[in-house]
Amino acid sequence: MRRILFAAAAALLLAAGCSTEPSAPPAPPADAVPAADALPAADAEHNAADVMFLQMMIMHNGQGLELTGLAADRTVSEEVRLLAAAIDTTQREEVKIMQSWLGGWKEPTTASKDMTTHASHGGLPATGPEQIEALRNTSDANFEATFLNLLTGHQNSAVELTNLATDGVNPQTGDLAERIKESRADQVAQMLRLIGG
């Protein structure tokens, strides 16, 4: 049963256009340090759930990087600046890791935008081009509050996405998903304290 469903899911994924062009994340902020040379390796064993989670997470991290990239150029408190920079750096590193695993498995590294929308259960996702544009156009006075609200929703959504990995079989993917769940939930906690005062 399970095997058949995964096979069907994989086939539909391909039909849905998984190999759309990756959206290039914005350039790293000037004070970012270069990522480490060595990327952690993943076991060969994997299934459709591992692949879907990694594809979705790469896209989700990419959208988050657009938000943090905007924060790098604006006036925000030191605490928010550091949080945004650390999220930027870690998510950029995660993208490299996840792409390298998918590449090693000969799987596409991108999910279609349609898939992202559908994963939000029919609603538009938290962060799309309109929200990123709105943040870009937000006045300095309102930037920090808008940024924190958008990124909070975005990271809430990342915690949800980690549920996709529950049925995966690749141990490194499972480990990464758990760390993503924890780190995003903790980032949300930090940001809600900043938003709510």
């Binding site: 899911a9 994963a119 259960h121 949800e160 529950t166």
Partner: peptide, 28 residues
């Protein structure tokens, strides 16, 4: 959980159904 993926896939054709049929789904 086995049905998580087919549900997501089903969204391709019936996103609205997924929205109403999934009480645990997110969103504000």
């Amino acid at each position: 959980k086995v049905f998580v993926y087919p549900l997501v896939i089903a969204g391709t054709a019936a996103a609205g159904l997924v929205a109403t049929g999934s009480p645990a789904s997110a969103h504000g």
